[in-house]
Write a protein that binds this DNA or RNA. Structure first.
Length: 852
RNA sequence: GCCGGAGUGGCGAAAUUGGUAUACGCACCAGACUCAAAAUCUGGCGUUCGCAAGGACAUGUCGGUUCGAGUCCGACCUCCGGCACCA
């Protein structure tokens, strides 16, 4: 230990030592309880940014804490190394994507090591390596076997800028998740994974994680799955044996239906129109709707409602009434059945549509008056004196004009009417979901090839398991036509059929990179397995993940895919649980002021407000930077970058370091063995210091468990301030005082390790523990007896206003406290001359005297 | 429009079950050290009235419950995020 704190030397020293002794490698045959701490794996862009630093500092703090507590901690890292940027580099600069990726990984690995994150490097994985993506292909084939991977021609989301398909999740809001470009629709043959098969489980099993995942992530997933309970009803087409099936959540309003409205793409439309004189007009309308939808600039903007009457009629199976069948742009083919019953009186969209086209509006639900005195029927029924409704009444109520259901409540009617429809065979209760199957085909080179072969005689054939991996060729022609570059590599395309051994062609698309990240953390448990994706027993030992940490940008992408994948793995017997992640923390963004403005925005090159982690380490050291990041704000909040804040962190480290330097000789020169003074030997100053120490241990132990790292650091600072207040020079300190100081410093240094591990190692060694924390340190235990306050300062209020404080013993009785408060001079100044109405005594906390 | 979340000093923030509002840090001010500056150390730091002791007012706004409200209830305002005709 040098006299001055030189982070550069200390950090290098300990990084080397950790590396030599493979300090953070998790062993699977360890009897201690396990803890799996995981951070979202990074894309190897080439450089870490501050968001990464924050993410990994959070995970590392928890890993250190759990390790010191005696857990067997798995803390792995890997690379989400397939994806667009490597391919962009190939297209723009002609570099080889594999080399580009490997160089980036090498550089970023160096950065992580300079940050001193305690990873188990022996388990490092990378998605672009054949020993990994082989298992992506294996999983694809397993899904194919079960009918969960299927191919269909479908309108897909197409990003014109990146020239590729996007999944629904990746084009949420109508824009590309990577570049923000408005997505277009294209018809392409694509592979899909049947995530819809798991829609119910994705919602239902959320209850297993509800308490430990952020509500905002759960909410977005719930909305994304979009579970909706209602009913199907078949409307017979008049003078035909065809039926139109509609989905509704409000079957109780069916007597108010005044039209059936179909989506422009509805498959029955052609047949319905065969004998219709309107055929040409309706088809022209449908084409116009499709064209408008394809060309819209802002896909989130709602269009004006437009429709056309087909002239064909349908029959309401409840009332027997004939209804016109319309086609309109506001009915979507990809939700429900692509057909709705239009109930203008009780649905805002239908209301708007009916007004525009003068369709009848018939009220069939009357509001329930909860408060008869205040009831103002005209304002709530939605109909004015003349019986014309000014707007739709969309709430539940009581049925009117509805045959035998008249007088029943909406709730009762919905259930009875669905049963009725089912009994009569024209419908029944139904649940629909908004979530769509996951399109995974990408017209890309840099991904895992889809392991499917097209044979002229056998058709679509899965590649044989023993032929996996289907290797990605070294390179391809990247000139870019919208087709996969793999089509330009004949050695890849041309193959033999695994069934008939005849000539065949490979699928030239690659898989969405979110396939790679859906199961990667299971691979960490057994990363070199050549026979299966992972050993079932190894995975069972480590998973589910105890704590997962990452950004919330993946709330409906990665985090929903990985839940789906886990349920599939459960169904094929690889794991035995439903949910892969017990606790999720979504960290906030790291922002910096945009120069010349008052705005704080996420660091980025284009805004010029980025901070390079390497510069930061060079200037302040990894420890100070990490300490600041964890201290400055709660983990979920936005973190505003502040160089002055980092300087504050390094000042704190320097002060602690200096204190250790000043005390180290005195503290290593103490009576031997397990010598400890008796309680009564400590002076009041030493007792106060020990009290603060044990209070701090208790606070840190609980705060770290909940990842309240900012308050943890504040508590460590308070503890250090208490040590400074115990103003004794090391040479003058008695053994008893030195004992108290040693207890404090040792606790402080160990508890600082999650935030500043290198400095803590150095200080721990200097306190006489050769080899550092990992050899000899344990998380300290709080002694409740020592932490207890010797006296209490009880606030005394008069009429709820703080007027004085009285000192009392911790075991003071209510009566004593009341007497002391009433006797206090400052209190008496406010009570004198008044009647004391009441005295409230909260034991050990507060006295409030109510006077009049 | 609908659905979430949040509003506390100059700034980041803290505050078990309703019980001392503003811990900890940043910035700022003063002092010590220094020829001087930086660094470091010490002290101060919600607003306001007061020489002081002390008082009054303060957790987005208004109202309520309570002996007591940052915390609970009601209405509203503002900001942030999500969704986008989902029948």
């Amino acid at each position: 230990m040098d006299e001055k704190y030189f982070p550069e030397a200390i950090e290098k020293k300990w990084q080397r030592r950790w590396n030599e002794i493979r300090a953070f490698e998790a062993k699977s045959d360890d009897p201690r309880p396990k803890f799996y701490c995981l951070e979202m794996l990074p894309y190897p862009s080439g450089f870490l940014h501050m968001g990464h630093v924050r993410n990994y500092s959070l995970g590392d703090a928890l890993s250190w804490f759990k390790r010191l507590q005696g857990f067997n901690v798995l803390h792995p890292i890997g690379w989400d190394s397939f994806g667009q940027p490597a391919e962009q580099a190939a297209i723009k600069r002609g570099v080889n994507p594999r080399e580009w990726t490997e160089q980036n990984i090498a550089h970023m690995r160096g950065q992580l090591q300079r940050l001193g994150i305690s990873y188990d490097w022996s388990r490092e994985i990378a998605a672009h390596r054949p020993d990994y993506y082989k298992w992506d292909q294996w999983f694809f084939l397993r899904m194919y076997e079960r009918g969960l991977a299927y191919k269909k021609m479908s309108p897909v989301n197409w990003c014109p800028k990146e020239q590729t398909v996007l999944s629904n999740e990746q084009s949420s809001g109508g824009v590309c998740w990577r570049c923000g470009t408005a997505v277009e629709k294209r018809d392409l043959e694509q592979w899909f994974l049947r995530i819809t098969e798991y829609a119910e489980q994705l919602v239902e099993q959320m209850k297993e994680i509800e308490a430990d995942w952020p509500e905002k992530v759960l909410k977005r997933q719930r909305d994304w799955v979009g579970r909706s309970v209602g009913a199907y009803v078949d409307f017979a087409v008049k003078e035909s044996d065809r039926k139109i099936r509609i989905f509704t959540t409000r079957i109780d309003t069916i007597y108010g239906a005044t039209a059936i409205v179909l989506a422009a793409e509805h498959p029955l439309l052609g047949e319905l129109l065969q004998e219709s004189p309107m055929k040409k007009d309706v088809e022209a309308f449908a084409r116009k709707v499709a064209a408008e939808r394809a060309s819209r600039k802002d896909p989130t903007e709602e269009e004006d409602k437009k429709g056309i009457n087909t002239g064909v009629l349908a029959i309401n199976p409840f009332s027997g009434e004939s209804l016109p069948i319309w086609v309109a742009n506001y009915v979507l083919m990809d939700y429900g059945t692509g057909a709705v019953m239009s109930v203008p009186a009780h649905d805002e969209r239908d209301f708007e549509f009916a007004q525009k086209y003068s369709l009848p509006i018939r009220q069939v639900i009357a509001p329930v008056s909860h408060n008869q005195a205040a009831a103002e029927p005209q304002s709530t029924t939605g109909s004015d004196q003349s019986g014309v409704m000014p707007h739709a009444f969309t709430e539940y109520g009581v049925l009117i004009n509805s045959d035998q259901w008249g007088g029943k409540t909406s709730e009762v009617a919905m259930s009875e009417m669905a049963d009725h429809a089912e009994g009569k065979g024209f419908g029944g209760g139904a649940v629909t979901y908004r979530i769509r199957d996951w399109g995974v085909s990408r017209q890309r080179f840099w991904g895992a090839p889809v392991p499917i072969i097209y044979c002229e005689s056998c058709g679509t054939v899965p590649e044989a398991y023993e032929n996996l991996p289907v290797l990605l060729p070294d390179t391809a022609d990247f000139s870019g036509t919208g087709q996969s570059p793999l089509t330009t590599v004949p050695e890849f395309v041309n193959t033999t059929c695994p069934q008939c051994k005849g000539a065949a062609r490979r699928d030239t698309d690659t898989m969405d990179t979110f396939v790679d990240s859906s199961w990667y953390f299971f691979r960490y448990t057994d990363p070199r397995n050549e026979l299966e994706p992972f050993d079932i027993a190894q995975a069972a030992e480590w998973t589910p993940v105890d704590q997962y940490i990452g950004g919330d940008s993946h709330a409906v992408m990665h985090l929903i895919y990985t839940r789906f994948w886990t349920k599939f793995m459960r169904d094929i017997g690889l794991v035995s649980f439903n949910e892969p992640v017990k606790k999720l923390l979504t960290q906030g963004m790291v922002t910096n002021r945009v120069e010349g403005t008052e705005e704080w925005k996420a660091m980025s090159k284009s805004l010029g407000n980025g901070v390079d982690p390497d510069d930061m380490i060079a200037a302040f050291g990894a420890d100070a930077a990490r300490l600041f990041i964890l201290f400055a704000a709660p983990a979920e909040n936005e973190l505003r970058w502040s160089e002055a804040g980092v300087e504050g962190a390094i000042r704190f480290l320097r002060r602690v370091y200096t204190a250790v330097w000043q005390w180290r000789e005195r503290l290593t020169n103490m009576p031997a063995g397990s010598w400890a003074p008796a309680a009564e030997e400590f002076g009041s100053g030493a007792r106060a210091l020990r009290r603060k120490t044990h209070q701090t241990i208790a606070k840190l132990t609980s705060d770290l468990e909940h990842l309240h790292l900012n308050t943890s650091v504040a508590a460590l600072m308070e503890l250090f301030n208490a040590l400074s207040d115990f103003d004794i020079a090391p040479v003058e300190a008695s053994d008893v005082d030195a004992f108290a100081v040693r207890e404090t410093l040792e606790a402080l240094v160990v508890m600082l390790a999650p935030f500043a591990p290198h400095a803590s190692e150095e200080m721990w060694e200097s306190l006489g523990h050769e080899g550092g924390l990992l050899n000899s340190a344990k998380w300290p235990l709080a002694d409740a007896e020592l932490a207890r306050n010797e006296e209490l300062e009880i606030p005394v209020q008069v009429n709820g206003k703080l007027r004085s404080r009285v000192i009392a013993a911790p075991d003071v009785s209510v009566e004593e406290l009341r007497a002391a408060a009433l006797a206090d001079d400052k209190v008496r100044a406010f009570t004198e001359g008044h009647d004391i109405v009441k005295v409230i005594v909260v034991p050990q906390r507060l006295v409030n005297i109510v006077v009049r």
